[in-house]
C-alpha cells in the first residue's frame, strides 16, 4: 500500500473539528500538536492511521484527530491497539493515554504489550495524577505528594515505567516534555518509524491538580548520554537518572511480533446477526 501522499500533508490535515476540552495550560494541548505534526512528517494519510485510547484526559486524543480512532474502556488501549495491528498490519497504530490508564488499570496490558513487541507506538502523557477524576494519586505520583485526598502523601514507591518497559522487552524507549513540542514531534516520528513496540513517555503537566508541575519546564534537560541499544545499560541509566532526562534512551533490535494472518472476512451484517435475539 502506498504510504506517500500526492501532496504534502500538514498538521492541520490530521486535526478534527472538535475542540479539546482540556484545561488551558494543560500539557496535552502541546502533545496533540506534536502528534499531528509527527503524522504529517511521517506522511501517512489520516485513513491509514488509527489512534486508540482508554479513559482519562489524555485519552481524548482520538477524538481530536481525524484518523480512525477508538476510545476504549479504561486501561484497555493496548489490547485494542494490539488486536488492530495484528489484524490490520497495514495501518499505522498509535495508542495514547495517561499514567493512570496505562500503568494502573492497564498495567498488566502494558507489561505484555512490551513483551509481545507488536509494531505500534504507545504515547503516555504522564502528569503523575488522575486529572479527570479530580486529583487522585496515580502509579507515578511521588510518595510525598500531599493533598486533601491523600493527606501526607501515599508513601508508596512510584511505578517506573521506562525501566519496566525495558525489562519487559519494549523495543524503543524515550522520554520527552510537552513544553518542547518540536522535539516531542521528532521523537514521535522516531518511535513510529522504529519497528516493534515503542514507548514514548511525555511529561505533561496537569496545571489544575499539580500546578507545581509548571516547574518541569525548568527541570527537564536533554539526556547527557547518547541513546543505546544495550538494554541493561539503558535500564541502569533510567533507574538512576532524575526523571527529567529527555531523549531517545533505548533503541533495540528485536523483531516485531506479527504472525501471518489469514482472516476470514466477515461482513458487518453477518456479525450483527450473532447478536440478534
Amino acid at each position: 500500500m502506498s504510504t506517500e501522499s500526492a501532496c504534502p500533508l500538514t498538521a492541520r490535515d490530521y486535526k478534527s473539528e472538535l475542540k479539546p476540552v482540556w484545561c488551558p495550560g494543560c500539557g496535552d494541548f502541546s502533545v496533540l500538536m506534536a502528534i499531528t505534526k509527527a503524522m504529517a512528517d511521517v506522511g501517512r494519510r489520516p485513513e491509514e492511521i488509527a489512534v486508540i485510547s482508554g479513559i482519562g484526559c489524555s485519552s481524548r486524543v482520538p477524538a481530536y484527530t481525524n484518523c480512525y480512532g477508538f476510545h476504549g474502556v479504561h486501561g484497555r488501549a493496548l489490547p485494542l491497539a494490539t488486536g488492530l495491528k495484528l489484524s490490520r498490519p497495514d495501518l499505522l497504530v498509535i495508542a495514547a493515554g495517561g499514567d493512570g490508564d496505562g500503568y494502573s488499570i492497564g498495567g498488566n496490558h502494558f507489561l505484555h504489550a512490551c513483551r509481545r513487541n507488536v509494531d505500534l507506538t504507545y504515547i503516555v502523557m504522564d502528569n503523575q495524577v488522575y486529572g479527570m477524576t479530580k486529583g487522585q494519586p496515580s502509579p507515578t505520583t511521588p510518595p510525598e505528594w500531599d493533598s486533601a485526598l491523600v493527606p501526607g502523601g501515599t508513601g508508596l514507591r512510584p511505578f517506573h515505567p521506562l525501566v519496566i518497559a525495558l525489562a519487559a522487552g519494549a523495543n524503543f524507549v524515550a522520554r520527552s516534555f510537552s513544553g518542547d513540542p518540536a522535539n516531542t514531534a521528532q521523537m514521535i516520528v522516531e518511535a513510529i518509524r522504529h519497528p516493534g513496540f515503542s514507548l514514548l513517555e511525555i511529561l505533561s503537566p496537569c496545571v489544575t491538580f499539580r500546578p507545581e508541575e509548571r516547574d518541569w519546564a525548568k527541570q527537564v534537560h536533554p539526556a547527557a548520554v547518547d541513546e543505546t541499544s544495550d538494554r541493561a545499560r539503558a535500564a541502569r541509566r533510567v533507574l538512576t537518572d532524575d526523571g527529567f532526562n529527555t531523549g531517545i534512551l533505548f533503541r533495540g533490535d528485536r523483531a516485531p511480533y506479527q504472525p501471518s494472518v489469514n482472516l476470514e472476512v466477515v461482513s458487518s451484517v453477518d456479525f450483527e446477526t450473532e447478536f440478534q435475539p
Binding site: 488551558p24 495550560g25 494543560c26 513544553g179 518540536a182 522535539n183 514531534a185
Partner: peptide, 25 residues
C-alpha cells in the same frame, strides 16, 4: 528542516507557551 531552526529556547520566541495560560486569566 525542523532541526535547523535555532531559537535558543524550547519554542519560537513569539509563542506563549501552552503552560503559561489558565482558564481564569
Amino acid at each position: 528542516a525542523a532541526t535547523d531552526y535555532s531559537w535558543g529556547s524550547l519554542e519560537s520566541p513569539e509563542v506563549i507557551p501552552f503552560g503559561d495560560v489558565h482558564h481564569l486569566m
